[in-house]
Design a protein around this nucleic acid. Structure first.
Lengths: 118, 118
DNA sequence: GCAAGGTACTTTGCAATGCAAGGTACTATC
DNA sequence: GATAGTACCTTGCATTGCAAAGTACCTTGC
């Protein structure tokens, strides 16, 4: 396996786990949002997420009671499933932010002697 | 599944992928290091990594040509496998740092309207 | 009306990988 | 030669992002 592929692979690995954070954060920001909308918003942050990732993830969060949704008509096209945070979801998002902060700190500590790191 | 468990689960997910970065960074810092040593160093950064994670990961990096190792006698106990970065490994580490930086930026962008985020 | 195109939601199966648990092996101490 | 400590290694499982393929609804043009 080439180093280039390895990098891609690892990059993908790194993204795992933070998707929930970003997605819930966007929903929280918008108040409510539908999947295709979220995907577009993530692209603005240079995070490419596809439907095959988004739908199962939202379904997981929904069944965990962190999100709920309502169907809404669209001006053009089929109805959309608008997701919003539940109270538990807001709590969870707070927790995720804390975890993320810890993680960033841990990496900073581990790489503090690396010249690239600033 | 309780929210508390979900948080633990996601936290674990987040750690995936950044382990390579932290481990290679530590090896780079030390010049060479053996697995149990690296685990101890990671704990200082609040990153708990166990042997069942460490050994396969190092083996992967080794077989990818990013690390090599030499056996060294120990003052007490069995000999140790000291890992060091190859030239390719250093390059790879640079790449990982870049990827990590992008990711942090992406999360920052996605969560910029969240009050917790600063 | 009905074909074509666009938008949106859903499911299936694969691949990667952290981890728990259990195992092997070498050295030192008593 | 038994016990304890340190170190390395392997197996199998569970999670989950993703590619690919499928279903369904709405609008537009003829």
């Amino acid at each position: 396996m080439k180093v280039q592929n390895l990098l891609e692979n690892t990059k993908q690995q790194m993204r795992k786990g933070i998707l929930e954070l970003c997605i819930m954060s966007i929903i929280s920001d918008e108040g409510e949002a539908y999947p295709s909308d979220i995907i577009t918003r993530l692209q603005e942050s240079q995070l490419i997420v596809v439907q095959g990732t988004m739908y199962p993830l939202l379904a997981r969060l929904k069944s965990a009671g962190l999100l709920n949704y309502t169907w809404k008509e669209s001006d053009a096209g089929p109805p959309r499933k608008y997701y919003a945070l539940t109270d538990g979801g807001s709590e969870f998002l707070d927790g995720l932010m804390g975890t993320w902060g810890q993680l960033v700190k841990a990496v900073k500590h581990s790489t503090k002697n690396l010249k690239v790191n600033k």
